[in-house]
């Protein structure tokens, strides 16, 4: 450092002594934000909707994520909720906080924690997953979960957007959950647990920031999980009409 300083001094002296010569300017190091990793953030509500089921159940549902970070490391908060309007109770409430790093051109790996805090017993899971864009434009999000009792499960979400026009978009989404062990307290049996299939027709009203949609959603429980639900006189299959909006900012 002292060497650098003395060199600068020398060059400064030089420029004073020989004013006509082009001053030997120091070449500065780039400490501007351009030389730093670009930090970005975003908020997306993939679903923010009202659901009305075939047996007159009403739900408020959201699925959103907030991210902050660089190309190399992002922190993402994913939140999902299903609120039964009549019962005034959360049927499902799930929050994940994950760190996300790129692992290939089109896929990121995620690791973090998930807290399920619906009405009833809570669960905490460790999450390991991948998310990205598969060939033919399928958006994939696959996760492995382990809860504090050692129960493991996996979830796979896939989504495809069909552009009817550049503003009218039909999106198809399938979420499937598989449990590798039973967690009877929260009504999960071993094997394929449930699927949620949705078809939504949206219109980009304000850029891609606000896109109202209507759609249908089909939820179904399978195997042991369905048996548990039946035993508790819950439904194993539901159809919903949905109305809502996609939001991004």
């Amino acid at each position: 450092m002292s060497r650098i300083r003395s060199l600068i001094t020398v060059s400064l002296l030089g420029s004073m002594v020989f004013p006509t010569a082009v001053a030997a300017q120091e070449m500065i190091a780039d400490t501007t934000s351009r030389k730093q990793a670009l930090t970005s953030w975003g908020v997306q509500f993939e679903e923010l909707e009202y659901r009305y089921s075939d047996d007159d159940e009403e739900l408020g549902v959201w699925s959103a994520d907030f991210f902050y970070g660089t190309d190399d490391l992002k922190v993402r908060w994913l939140t999902k909720g299903e609120y039964a309007i009549e019962e005034q109770a959360y049927e499902g409430l799930e929050n994940q906080l994950v760190a996300q790093v790129p692992i290939s051109d089109f896929f990121d790996a995620k690791a973090g924690v998930r807290f399920d805090t619906p009405e009833g017993p809570d669960r905490t899971y460790a999450v390991l997953g991948i998310t990205g864009l598969a060939p033919q434009w399928f958006e994939i999000d696959a996760n492995l979960y382990v809860n504090e009792e050692g129960d493991t499960s996996a979830g796979l979400d896939a989504e495809y957007e069909l552009l009817l026009t550049n503003y009218w978009i039909l999106s198809a989404a399938v979420d499937a959950t598989v449990a590798f062990s039973e967690d009877r307290e929260i009504g999960v049996g071993k094997g394929l647990v449930s699927t949620e299939t949705g078809l939504r027709l949206s219109y980009d009203l304000v850029d891609r920031a606000f896109s109202p949609y209507i759609g249908v959603v089909h939820e179904r429980k399978y195997g042991d999980t369905a048996d548990i639900a039946e035993a508790e006189s819950g439904s194993t299959e539901d159809w919903f009409a949905v109305i809502g909006a996609r939001i991004a900012f």
């Binding site: 030997a24 120091e26 070449m27 190091a29």
Partner: peptide, 11 residues
């Protein structure tokens, strides 16, 4: 217009 010193400055 340069001296070796000059290029050394920017390490």
């Amino acid at each position: 217009d340069s001296t070796q010193a000059k290029t050394d400055v920017a390490i």
